[in-house]
C-alpha cells in the first residue's frame, strides 16, 4: 500500500519545533516621580517600603534629603528629581521609598508611585537624548512603552557613584 499523505508528511516532519529566535529582555522596577516615569533594573532594587520618618543631615547636597532607619540600618535618602535637576519631590499620599544597591552602596530613593516590575526588550531601548541636560547623563536609555508612555531607564550605579562623589567632595 502506498503511504498516505499523512504518513509522507510525518516522515519529513521535524522531531521538535524550530526554536523561536530569542528576544532578550530585562526586568525593570518602574516608578513615577514628578512628571517622570523611571525604571531601574530590578536586580538592583532590594525592597520597597512606606515613607519613614526622615532625619535631615546638616551640610549635605540638597538631593540628599536625610537618613531613615530601615530594618535596623541607617540609610541615606536621595530625591532623584533634585539629583537630576528636574525640580524637587513633594511628599504625596501613597509615596514610597525603594532601596537600591550598586557598587556596595545601599541608598533609599523617593518614589511618588510604584508601578511595579515590567519586562523590557533590549531591542526596544532607545538611546538617551544627547540634549537631555543633566538628566541624560544618568540614563542608560529610553523606552516607548505601550502602557506607560516614555520610560527613562536610570543608570543606578552611575547615580550612586556620582552622588557619593558629590557628598564626599563637600
Amino acid at each position: 500500500m502506498p503511504p498516505t499523505p499523512l504518513q509522507l508528511a510525518l516522515a519529513e516532519a521535524p522531531e521538535k519545533g524550530r526554536a523561536q529566535a530569542a528576544r532578550p529582555d530585562e526586568e525593570f522596577f518602574v516608578f513615577k516621580l514628578g512628571a517622570l516615569t523611571l525604571a531601574v533594573p530590578s536586580k538592583l532594587v532590594r525592597e520597597v517600603s512606606r515613607l519613614a520618618p526622615m532625619t535631615p543631615l546638616p551640610r549635605t547636597p540638597s538631593f540628599l534629603l536625610g537618613v531613615v532607619g530601615n530594618r535596623g540600618q541607617v540609610m541615606p535618602v536621595i530625591d532623584l528629581l533634585r539629583f537630576l535637576q528636574q525640580g524637587e519631590s513633594k511628599p504625596v499620599p501613597g509615596g514610597r521609598l525603594f532601596v537600591g544597591e550598586a557598587n556596595g552602596l545601599l541608598v533609599a530613593f523617593l518614589a511618588d508611585q510604584v508601578i511595579g516590575l515590567r519586562r523590557i526588550f533590549v531591542a526596544d531601548k532607545l538611546p538617551a537624548p544627547s540634549s537631555g541636560g543633566a538628566a541624560a547623563e544618568f540614563l542608560s536609555g529610553l523606552v516607548q512603552h505601550r502602557e506607560l508612555g516614555t520610560v527613562s531607564l536610570l543608570d543606578l550605579a552611575k547615580v550612586l557613584q556620582a552622588a557619593r562623589a558629590a557628598v564626599v567632595r563637600r
Binding site: 532625619t55 549635605t60 537618613v67 541607617v74
Partner: peptide, 16 residues
C-alpha cells in the same frame, strides 16, 4: 549605628 559613607555626613556627625 555608624553612618554609611553614602550619607556624606559632616565630620561632627559621628553616628546615629
Amino acid at each position: 549605628r555608624r553612618l554609611p559613607p553614602a550619607a556624606g555626613a559632616s565630620p561632627f556627625i559621628i553616628g546615629a
